[in-house]
Design a binder for these strands. Structure first.
Length: 462
RNA sequence: GGCCCCGUCGUCUAGCGGUAAGGAUCCAUGGUUUUCAUCCAUGUUACAGGAGUUCGAUUCUCCUCGGGGUCACCA
């Protein structure tokens, strides 16, 4: 059974980097019919954990990701951690250290003055005497003083750390008794049955410490996969200052879950030359062994392309539903098929799409100056008049082709090019020089509204 | 600074000793379109540098340079 987990600390929302590792973990679990668990790492700041969990679950829900089982909150597991701390104490694998904070920082100052690595000197490692008065002890683990710790990483390969380079007897429980991060991570991952740890490679240097804890407690080692960071355009770790890092902001900007997930799965991972992945394909094909070793820069050009791709290929019924968040209730619109077909190919985001819909269905009150100057000159108003007469006289007007025939008639009868009628008509109908096909626009708004817009334009520009 | 990771077009990436170094995006040009967008063509741009190993290195090794991460009684 493959068990993965996503273990964010409660920052209040789900960000892009977290989402990517969550996605990888989710996909790998689903591929193996395993479990994808969620744990909130709130040992220190319990205050926002509930909201944070909700924000994450909300974002998961929007994206169609589901975690399995109950959410684990580290803040509620003190007794469990205490039990394992005591076990290590009893087995002599951990000990109480009475070094005061002052003494410790003095030690570090001397060490760095001597250009030595700053580390705890093991003063209380084998202490047998009477503890000093007035110092509440921390608990330190007896870490190996020499030898190698090898992290077998599924992405980076075997990484060798020398104990004397990186280790000391690090603290596993603070003076107030609360356990520290590396300790609870190891304990929880084991207790939750996690077999594959997929996380950012900023955790790589924590891994040896966690391995020490696994070994001290006699736990089976999971498989590690450290995925490279996502960098901003400056090449630094992506952070909140880099704009839209809140996943839900992408919903507001009009991105679809498919596009965002597809974008993220291809950031640092690949399957040959394939660019488009449905959710099913991702679940079928994702494998952490194909994760890139190097960091990737966050650049949303491709996200825009993917988003327009998914919009273009979405069924209209689904688009109508998605546009509801912008206050557009298209479900009952009798011309919604023509409308959505006409605009889905010209929008990068749902938000843009909504704006385009408004542009079509709203009677223009404003005409762009340059458009008026370019298109409503010469006999343009006369042409509009002739076309308007045909519209109002026509028997059946429903389809775009019905309107197209009328335009064709004017063109033929007057011996003019299509542009001679198209441009003025476009300005009359939309107030600007660009937009969807005119025959579609007229079919969508219908005969009366078409007439209204034509007469408005003529009246205003005569 | 110590330790660790990384280094192919601007960006995302394919490559796994022999390739004209491929795809995607972006950008540019042309075509289609009454317009814009879409779409379709075409084009510009990359193996950080230097030593080895080898008949042959983008691929293996070492060094240099560059970038990043991490060094808490934070997570």
């Amino acid at each position: 059974m493959v068990v993965t987990r996503f273990a964010p600390s409660p920052t209040g929302y789900l960000h892009i980097g977290g989402l990517r590792t969550a996605l990888f973990s989710y996909l790998w679990a689903r591929r193996h019919n395993g479990k994808f668990l969620l744990r909130i790492e709130d040992t220190d700041k319990a205050r926002n954990s509930q909201e944070a969990a909700e924000a994450i679950v909300n974002a998961f829900h929007w994206l169609g990701l589901e975690h399995d089982g109950e959410i684990i909150y580290q803040s509620q597991r003190d007794e469990i951690y205490a039990k394992y701390i005591n076990q290590l104490l009893e087995e002599g694998k951990a000990y109480r250290c009475y070094m005061s904070k002052e003494e410790l920082s003095e030690l570090r100052e001397t060490q760095s003055a001597n250009k030595e690595r700053t580390k705890y000197d093991g003063k209380y490692r084998d202490f047998k005497g009477t503890p000093p008065e007035g110092v509440k002890p921390v608990i330190r683990i007896k870490a190996p003083l020499s030898g190698d710790i090898i992290v077998r990483d599924g992405v980076k390969g075997d990484i060798v750390f020398r104990a004397e380079d990186i280790l000391d007897d690090f603290v596993i429980a603070r003076a107030d008794g609360s356990p520290t991060y590396n300790f609870v991570v190891a304990v929880d991952d084991h207790l939750m049955g996690v077999t594959e740890i997929i996380r950012g490679d900023d955790h790589l240097s924590n891994t040896p410490k966690q391995i020490i804890i696994y070994e001290a407690l006699g736990f089976d080692m999971p498989n590690f996969h450290h995925v490279p960071m996502i960098h901003n355009s400056e090449g630094k770790k992506l952070s909140k200052r880099d704009g839209a890092t809140d996943v839900m902001a992408y919903k507001e900007m009009g991105y679809t879950p498919e596009a965002l997930l597809n974008f993220l799965v291809r950031l640092g991972w690949s399957h040959g030359d394939q660019e488009i992945f449905s959710m099913d394909e991702m679940r079928e094909l994702f494998d952490p062994k194909n994760i890139n070793k190097s960091a990737s820069i966050y650049n949303t050009e491709k996200l825009d392309w993917l988003n327009s791709h998914y919009i273009k290929n979405a069924p209209n019924s689904e688009l109508a539903k998605l546009l509801e968040q912008y206050g557009l209730l298209l479900a009952s619109h009798d011309k919604k098929e023509i409308l959505l077909d006409a605009i889905k190919e010209r929008a990068k985001t749902l938000k843009e799409m909504a704006a385009l819909v408004y542009e079509v269905i709203t009677t223009p009150t404003y005409y762009e100056q340059t458009a008026v100057e370019k298109a409503l000159k010469g006999n343009a108003l006369e042409i509009l008049n002739i076309f308007g007469a045909k519209v109002s006289a026509a028997k059946e007007l429903h389809l775009p082709s019905d309107y197209h025939h009328l335009m064709q008639e004017v063109v033929d009868e007057m011996g003019i090019g299509f542009g001679k009628i198209g441009q003025p008509l476009r300005v009359a109908l939309l107030g600007k020089m660009s937009g969807p096909g005119l025959d579609s626009v007229m079919a969508i708004i219908g005969r009366d509204e078409t007439m209204l817009r034509i007469t408005n334009a003529i009246a205003k520009h005569s």
